[in-house]
Design a protein around this nucleic acid. Structure first.
Length: 137
DNA sequence: TAGGCCATCTGGTCCT
DNA sequence: AGGACCAGATGGCCTA
């Protein structure tokens, strides 16, 4: 019969708790390393991934500015916003709303950020009034 | 209550 | 060998 020690992470998930003792020299480090890896992965997700999402979120203009966005919304809107800025950079006209091809490739639509500026009925400065959020990507 | 979103765990792969 | 990164699975929470 194999012998091993049965560990579980404690309630704070920071350390191993000895549940029961058996005999096996192989299982012990594996369980401890697993909890350590879990902790590293939590830290990476919270401190690295989520911080990156939060940083990116701050660069996306919305109305209201603190509007809650999901992660997929952040990614999609960031892409749309980059396209919007690229269009304005390409035309060199910050006053003229930029156009984007729609998904069906059958025509063009006003881009999300210019659309938002128009919707706010402040056409004089569209480049600075794209803070409304329309959930179309 | 179903669906969306998220945090966490887990095992695999890659890198140092 | 150990850590970083990644993707899949799972369960909890929230909202329409």
């Amino acid at each position: 019969m194999e012998n091993f020690i049965n560990y579980q992470c404690d309630e704070s998930w920071e350390r191993q708790v000895l549940i029961s003792t058996f005999q096996s020299s192989e299982v012990v480090p594996t369980a401890k390393q697993r909890c350590q890896a879990n902790a590293r992965e939590r830290d990476r997700t919270q401190n690295s991934v989520n911080t990156a999402f939060n940083t990116l979120r701050l660069l996306i203009p919305t109305e209201p500015p603190d509007r809650k966005l999901s992660k997929i919304e952040i990614l999609r809107l960031a892409g749309s916003y980059i396209t919007h800025l690229d269009n304005q950079l390409y035309t060199g006209d910050m006053e003229q709303p930029c156009l984007q091809k729609d998904n069906t490739d059958k025509g063009t639509n006003l881009c999300t950020f210019c659309w938002s500026a128009v919707k706010k009925d402040k056409p004089s400065t569209p480049a600075r009034n794209y803070y409304s959020y329309k959930p179309s990507y």
